[in-house]
Amino acid sequence: MSGGAAVSGGAAGVGAWRMPAEPERHERLWMAFPRGGYTLGDDDASAEAARTAWASVANAAAEFEPVTVVVDPTATRDARRHLSGEITILEAPLDDAWMRDIGPTFVVPSGGFAEGGVEQKLGAVDWTFNGWGAQPWASWEADREIGSFVARAAGACILPSLLVNEGGAIHVDGRGTVLVTETVQLDPGRNPYADRARVEAELARTLGATHVIWLPRGLSRDYEEFGTRGHVDMVAAIPAPGVLLLHSQPDPAHPDHAVMASLRSFLSETVDAEGRPWEIVDLPAPSELRDSAGFVDHNYVNHLVVNGGVLACGFDDPVADARAASVLASVYPGRRVVTLDAREIFARGGGIHCITQQQPAV
């Protein structure tokens, strides 16, 4: 296959489960609500900005599909103040509010049966979570329990995994292809004893992956103090079989201009699980290059697909925001694109995709 050693085909030990592509039908959306800590910031204004940003995503998603938000008991009053009455609230201890990473990855049976021949309807991979590679600033005593908590609440069959992984570190096409990043799954802070073969075998067992594409790295900011060390959902998405939506940084002054040019070249030499070369669709970044902490990682690839719609990141950049909405509408035909201000979420380390996790319909 194209792509050399960075691509795996025909992974052994494919399991009875399949992770559906994000555009497939959802049963509901899961989120967490920010509680006291670094996400809320050091003052009331910052805390309200974070709560408002998270709630705007939940409230917008609730117009398309059912939404459940996990809330730390200390934040329940604030959550009820911000969230629509249509949203279900479940209380559980939390360290943080990045549901894509702390929650489970939902899967469905690849046939009619799973787990010893017993008919199943929904599975949930409970990855091991250790604060994005045991980051010194992170705490995860509560967050490491959220995967199983959400799985039980959803009535899913729990698939425990010893692989340290996060939902933002994988992207699938629902047909066997999975995108990962060498600096995440092979991170010594996450999986010091793993190699590609072991990771691929686990992705086959849990997600039904038959073809793993190993991106060499992620965006520049992801390797700074509060980064994830290369989450793929800041770089690429798969809106349809054989189509790759790719972040683009047009400005040569930004370090990700060279990073994304290199990744685009790499991905253009790979194929999906069915052997098709990718149709690459570029999604240019907004015009802002820096904030007070340095070069930003603002991008539109970190969007969320919902039933009948797409929740797009906005950056108060009318030209770039409109261009991104147009591109998203073209690759998700028939869906309504809703642009939400994502600057407060990105300022805290992620985007709309990072704070959400879809539960597929079965």
Rank of each mutant, 00 (worst) to 15 (best):
R81A: 11
D233P: 05
E274L: 11
S265Y: 15
R100F: 06
E27P: 00
R18I: 13
T206H: 13
L207W: 06
E27R: 14
E274T: 14
A32K: 08
L283I: 04
V172D: 01
A293C: 14
G85L: 09
A49P: 05
D233Q: 06
I102Q: 02
L246F: 01
S8N: 14
T270I: 05
N165R: 11
A21Q: 04
E48D: 15
L245M: 03
A204G: 06
V331K: 01
E86W: 15
V178H: 07
A75G: 02
A45M: 12
G350F: 07
Y38D: 15
W30P: 04
A361E: 10
E22D: 07
S330Y: 13
Y332E: 10
T39S: 14
I238S: 10
D256A: 02
N299F: 02
A92P: 12
D126V: 11
A53D: 00
A6P: 11
V178N: 08
D44A: 15
D126M: 07
P216F: 02
M31R: 03
E141K: 13
W140R: 05
N307I: 11
V71R: 01
A201L: 09
T52D: 10
P160H: 01
I213Q: 04
L203P: 15
A197F: 10
H257A: 00
M260W: 07
R323D: 12
A169C: 15
V305D: 01
R144G: 12
R323F: 10
Q357S: 09
A134L: 13
L179R: 02
W127E: 03
